[in-house]
Design a protein around this nucleic acid. Structure first.
Length: 569
RNA sequence: CGGGGCGUAGCGCAGCCUGGUUAGCGCGCCUGCCUUGGGAGCAGGAGGUCGUAGGUUCGAAUCCUACCGCCCCGACCA
């Protein structure tokens, strides 16, 4: 590509809208152009990076036996009504009517469409297994799009769907995708972890997320220092410590706590530690209020709560709503005498003689005990794991880190095939629902995550496999025949060797070209300028290390090819 | 949806509080000269419905109202 011919508008200054480094750099390096919130045009340079990711994804999907197809983005509501998701999927699903007043939606994912294809086209166990994928633009009307391509409303996703004859066969398909994903993200040059995950709105029995480790990640990942255990914090199961202390139940007592509402204040006033206190939080689960009890120093994990209650949505409510529902001012709420449904974190169940709010302003209660003093409708693991908890697998020490979710694999089971009546005949002539799996990769997000992980003060440092161009040739002597000829020759020789090369043939001063080359993050830079005139040499520079060497023009292609070979995974 | 911030030239901003000629600055862009290995210099120039609509006023970028858009925080522990 000739720089002079393409649209690659680099910016010296950072647009005010960008907060995180990948977003800033992508805007400055002319990757994309925002049309409206969460919706971007991909400019040539950004598109080239996306294509690199797509190609790696394609190669590995194909290697894993999946086959590419392309499904529509506009989908009829009827299909979504069949699966039951037209009601379940929230406002993220963009709905509209066509000219015939038919209800339609923009596909945020394609389980319904693929299941429809398969049920109409496959009828025999002999056709299975099959795994189909597409790379396509998805639309999800996110509550709050942010960070540029990191969380857009419109984004590019690779989604794959597997169909199997049985659960055990589906597990093989799942493993295959899991391994393919490991290869994909390794090839992208990313530092990542595969973690156990909640399956969320898509549903299904179990799943793993692939997380690129980065401070700006929107997810928290917990992993064990001693074993292979790794999970999204939403999912991390808490292994209960044995509680052998047998303490006799004491008599319930009311204590005055004037003006003490926060856990810390109550504890300080009563001279107790937060692990002796139980807080009562009120959530609204699909419009039903639920009281949730956790120890004073713990945090409720809403995803766990949601799963326990089988609710589509749970939300903590504000002080006013709490008062409206319970008649108790916040800070003094407790389970004793509370009429709403109460669920209890497993840790609380093993506590004896603890403290709670007194359901009356300025009062708490002591020596409270579950079951004896209040009714419990369920006990479960409802809190967030912490680094002081033992690893649920081996008991080892846990660590927390932030991650960007770039891939997610799900074992779906027969949920969709049953609701949509997608069946095949097995070898005995029995009708059976397909056992499904689905597998997503946020292609545009991978590019953002890669930049989040690979940059310095001067700009992007692309890993070779994702770099839109592997080499940039700077012509620093546009009016110098010898220099221009050498640069042009290098450009065409590299191209003929199959190297993605950008020739900076703009009429710009050297400083600007150097700055832009750094900003764009092209892994290798070849400078053809005055050293060619002086000593017959050109400079080859490694963007990542900054190391330079001077070689003759004849050597350049060979030198670069060997450097690229080292970096190409 | 709540809270906060912002909307003035392609980008980054000043001006607004305290209303008053042709609305500024830096970067970028155009022309010329000069320069050419880390975003040069000089000279000249183009480019603005001051987000939109309404109101107050002799007069509005500036004050008031409504709307639109964008960004950030939160969907958070009582």
């Amino acid at each position: 590509m000739r720089y002079s011919e393409t649209l690659l508008p680099t910016l010296k200054e950072t647009p005010a809208e960008a907060e995180i480094v990948s977003h800033r750099l992508m805007l400055r390096a002319g990757f994309m152009h925002k049309l409206t919130s969460g919706i971007y045009s991909y400019l040539p340079y950004g598109l080239a990076a996306i294509r690199k990711v797509e190609n790696i994804v394609r190669e590995e999907m194909n290697r894993a036996g999946a086959h590419e197809l392309l499904m529509p983005s506009v989908q009829p509501a009827d299909l979504w009504k069949e699966s039951g998701r037209y009601e379940k999927y929230g406002p993220e699903l963009l709905r509209f009517r066509d000219r015939h007043d038919r209800e339609s939606c923009l596909g945020p994912t394609h389980e319904e469409v693929i299941t429809d294809i398969i049920r109409k086209m496959l009828h025999s166990y002999r056709d299975l297994p099959i795994n189909l994928y597409q790379i396509q633009t998805k639309f999800r009307d996110e509550i709050r799009p942010r960070f540029g391509l990191m969380r857009g409303r419109e984004f590019i996703m690779k989604d794959a769907y597997s169909f199997d004859v049985s659960d055990s066969a589906a597990e093989i398909s799942y493993r295959r995708m899991y391994e393919a994903y490991r290869r994909i993200f390794t090839r992208c040059g990313l530092e990542f972890r595969a973690v156990q995950a909640d399956s969320g709105a898509i549903g299904g029995s179990f799943s793993h997320e692939f997380m690129v480790l980065a401070e700006t990640g929107e997810d928290t990942v917990v992993f064990c220092r001693e074993c292979e255990y790794a999970a999204n914090i939403e999912k991390a199961v808490i292994r209960l410590k044995e509680n052998n202390q047998v303490e006799p139940l004491a008599e319930l007592e009311k204590v005055e706590t004037p003006g003490k509402r926060k856990v810390d204040a109550v504890c300080e006033f009563l001279q107790i530690s937060p692990d002796q206190l139980v807080k009562t939080l009120v959530f609204i689960a699909d419009s039903v209020p639920v009281g949730v009890l956790v120890r004073g120093d713990r945090e409720v994990e809403e995803v766990k709560l949601k799963n326990l209650l089988g609710a589509a949505d749970v939300e903590m409510i504000d002080d006013k709503q709490v008062y409206d529902i319970t008649g108790v001012p916040t800070g003094y709420l407790g389970p004793v005498g509370l009429t709403i449904k109460i669920v209890v974190d497993q840790e609380v169940e093993s506590m004896v003689n603890f403290y709670v709010g007194g359901n009356e302003k300025n009062y708490h209660m002591k020596n409270v005990n579950a079951i004896r003093d209040f009714e419990v409708s369920a006990v479960a693991d409802l809190r967030q794991i912490t680094t002081t908890d033992p690893c649920p697998e081996c008991g080892g020490k846990l660590e927390l880190t932030e991650g960007i979710e770039v891939g997610h694999v799900f074992k779906l089971g027969t949920g969709y095939s049953e609701s949509m009546q997608a069946t095949f005949q097995d070898e005995n002539g029995q009708e059976k629902p397909f056992v499904m799996g689905c597998y997503g990769i946020g292609v545009s997000r991978v590019v953002a995550a890669a930049i989040e992980q690979n940059h310095d003060d001067n700009g992007i440092i692309f890993p070779v496999p994702l770099a839109p161009y592997t080499v940039i040739v700077l012509n620093l002597g546009l009016k110098d025949k010898k220099i221009t000829e050498a640069a042009e020759r290098l450009y065409s020789e590299l191209q003929s060797q199959g190297v993605d090369v950008l020739l900076d043939d703009r009429d710009e001063r050297p400083g600007s070209k150097f700055k832009d080359a750094d900003l764009l993050g092209v892994p290798f830079r070849v400078t053809v300028g005055k050293s060619l005139t002086n000593s017959g040499l050109v400079e080859v520079r490694d963007r990542k290390s900054g190391a330079t060497e001077e070689v003759t023009p004849d050597q350049v292609v060979a030198v670069l090819l060997s450097k690229i070979a080292v970096e190409q995974i």
